[in-house]
Amino acid sequence: MTGSPAPTSIVVRMRVNGHDCEMLVPVRLTVAELLRDRLGLTGTKVSCEMQVCGACTVVVDGDPVSSCTALACDLDGTEVLTVEGLAQGRDLHPVQEAFMEANALQCGFCTPGFIMMAVALLDACRGADQDKIREWMDGNLCRCTGYAPIETAVTLAASRMGAGSRGDDH
């Protein structure tokens, strides 16, 4: 491995919202920069850049990830889901529907991140109870709503999506 300097760009092959995609990316490029600046998927928002606020949450191979501090070079071989990939045509994902119904948004800047976090949670743990919902969603910040409607929305989505689990959670 010694001798030649480490490359500063690498080719990644991934699936983004169901579409295969191959790109040469700088190692310094974050997942959020890849999505927003190179793929035009601006639904993913960046705010705290410290993995605290969750606005930039996307789902990579089923796991919630802070796209602002994850490197695009790590996406090689993965499947990435962003807020733009949730709806099936005109049909919204149950989590999106629940956020609309529960009036769980105001300015909307945190909304994609909350929705992706809830999608990851309910994918990992369909029958998530109140404690589980609070534990997961506590990792996202909202400055507008005071959270109560967001908790209601995720609870509503959880009840609609029913029990069942990806199997590696509890």
């Binding site: 993995q51 796991d63 919630p64 802070s66 994850a70 949670l121 997961w136 506590d138 990792g139 996202n140």
Partner: peptide, 8 residues
């Protein structure tokens, strides 16, 4: 941390 930190 939070669920994202725990995932990565």
């Amino acid at each position: 941390g939070n669920a994202r930190v725990r995932s990565t």
